[in-house]
Design a protein around this nucleic acid. Structure first.
Length: 431
RNA sequence: GACCCUGUCGUCUAGCCUGGUCUAGGACAAGGGCCUUUCGAGCCCUUGACACGGGUUCAAAUCCCGUCAGGGUCACCA
């Protein structure tokens, strides 16, 4: 039985790199009918935080990476002591200093070879490694020790983790040997770097999965993007579901090379999923954002109206937050008009044209999209002007922007009232 | 600095294991065009890479060596 684990530390949010590690572990387990174990490495009491723990768990759930078993290192402290004391008894470790608190492992100079599933053979010389602390003076175990005791006692068969752990591997192998445990297979995933090179960090753009969730990225899109970092489904495929990935994935096919996080590609993938998602479901995701922005009231809004607006924007947004930004004029009482747009399209006096158009709209018995368009087309014909000579100014007056959905849809969903108010602003009194 | 990992378009990658079909394929981005009611949507096109130097071989992106570059690790953090 294949058993893999993801072992985050609740000292920070689940970030892009951690999510990818979790994803590949999960995929490997699912593709081989194995078990995916979640282990919380919360031995550093000072830095661990419940808030981070909750965020990690909810982010994993959001991504769809459900775990089969869950363990907390803080609940296994006795175990680490037992094994550490055994090593002391066997002369493989010793107590440090006079206080007899910390337990230190004696490193044996030797060559250690591992056969990494991704990198192939890697050789280390332990002569460059100092004796390793197993148990700290405060009684808590160090990372490398707790990790080995847990991986061994939890029967982990494949350790799949980031490249940054390669240099921990010889230290851990020594502990496996000293404790008489059999070795798992190791697979070290290439790191995800920031655009500027180096590690992904808070300073180098959003890195927490929760941030992407809040910005209106779809979980399936984030997963799809992560999947493509260091792995390829082949056949020039870019869009792939988790279910399909389970069938195609093999840890041996993972690349060795670090990759750069590219928000543009994530945006594109997200836009593809948004296009294929139902407007109803997108609306459900958008509603909380609208409430938060106070564009709608929590218990008093027209769900169907939101769905209609989402349909208008579905094909042009990259992420849900784009909708909030680009469709703001449907919700705001007072719109902000882009100064450049105003200068370009509204510096000429169009009082007469606006007024006429308004009158035609008022006269409509049935205020429908086709009727609005017909009224508009007739007017420009009578005025003997090009449609675009009036379309653009009206769009700017109504939305404050030069781009957006079709003008007649905009007018329809804005409604007579708002349309009238906004056109009025640009009609001089004396006309 | 020591040790380790890695080098294919700007970015993600296919190809590498099992040399020839690679004048290196796809996607994102960028640039250009079309559509015309706008474009951030759609359609079409273009630019653009085997890090460098040596081998091996009839033949190297693919195999070997070196150089260089980037990254990671060297905690009583995880």
């Amino acid at each position: 039985m294949i058993r893999v684990r993801f072992a985050p530390s609740p000292t920070g949010y689940l970030h892009i790199g951690g999510a990818r590690t979790a994803l590949f572990n999960w995929l490997y387990a699912r593709s081989k009918q194995g078990r995916f174990i979640l282990r919380i490495e919360d031995t550093d009491i000072k830095r661990s935080n419940k808030r981070y723990l909750d965020e990690i768990l909810s982010s994993l759930k959001w991504l769809g990476l459900e775990w089969d078993e869950l363990y907390y290192q803080s609940q296994r402290l006795k175990l680490y002591h037992q094994y550490a004391e055994r090593l002391v008894k066997e002369g493989k470790a010793y107590y440090a200093g006079v206080d007899k608190g910390a337990i230190i492992f004696k490193v044996i100079p030797q060559k250690i070879k591992i056969n990494d599933l991704i990198h192939g053979e890697i050789e280390f010389d332990t002569r460059t490694i100092k004796d390793q602390v197993l148990i700290k003076s405060d009684g808590t175990p160090t990372y490398n020790f707790a990790c080995v005791v847990d991986d061994a006692t939890l029967n982990i068969t494949y350790v799949i983790r980031g490249d940054d752990h390669i240099s921990n591997t010889p230290k851990q192998v020594m502990l496996y040997q000293a404790l008489g445990f059999s070795l798992p297979e190791f697979a070290h995933l290439p790191l995800i770097l920031s655009k500027e090179g180096g590690r992904l960090s808070k300073r180098k753009g959003a890195t927490a999965i929760g941030d992407y969730r809040r910005m209106g990225y779809l979980a399936c899109a984030v997963v799809n993007y992560l999947l493509l970092l260091g792995w390829s489904p082949g056949k020039n495929r870019e869009l792939i579901s988790l279910e399909e990935a389970i069938r195609l994935f093999d840890i041996k096919d993972v690349n060795k090379t670090a990759s750069t996080f590219d928000i543009d590609k994530l945006n594109w993938i997200n836009s593809q999923y948004i296009k294929s998602e139902s407007a109803q479901r997108l609306a459900e995701a958008v509603i909380p954002l609208l409430i938060k922005k106070r564009y709608i009231l929590k218990d008093n809004f027209d769900r169907n109206y939101i769905v209609s607006l989402v349909k208008l924007f579905q094909n042009r947004i990259n992420k849900l937050s784009d909708f909030i930004e680009w469709a703001d004029y449907f919700f705001l009482k007072r719109i902000k008009i882009d100064p450049l747009a105003r200068k370009k399209f509204l510096s000429k006096d169009l009082s007469k044209e606006f007024k006429l158009f308004m009158e035609r709209l008022e006269a409509l018995e049935d205020f429908s999209i086709p009727n609005i368009e017909t009224a508009f087309r007739q007017l420009v014909k009578e005025l003997n002007i090009e449609a675009k000579a009036l379309v653009h100014p009206i769009r700017v007056a109504l939305t404050g922007k030069t781009i957006g959905p079709g003008l007649f849809e905009v007018i329809y969903y804005l409604g007579k009232e708002k349309t009238r108010e906004r056109l009025k602003r640009f009609i001089k009194k004396e006309v």
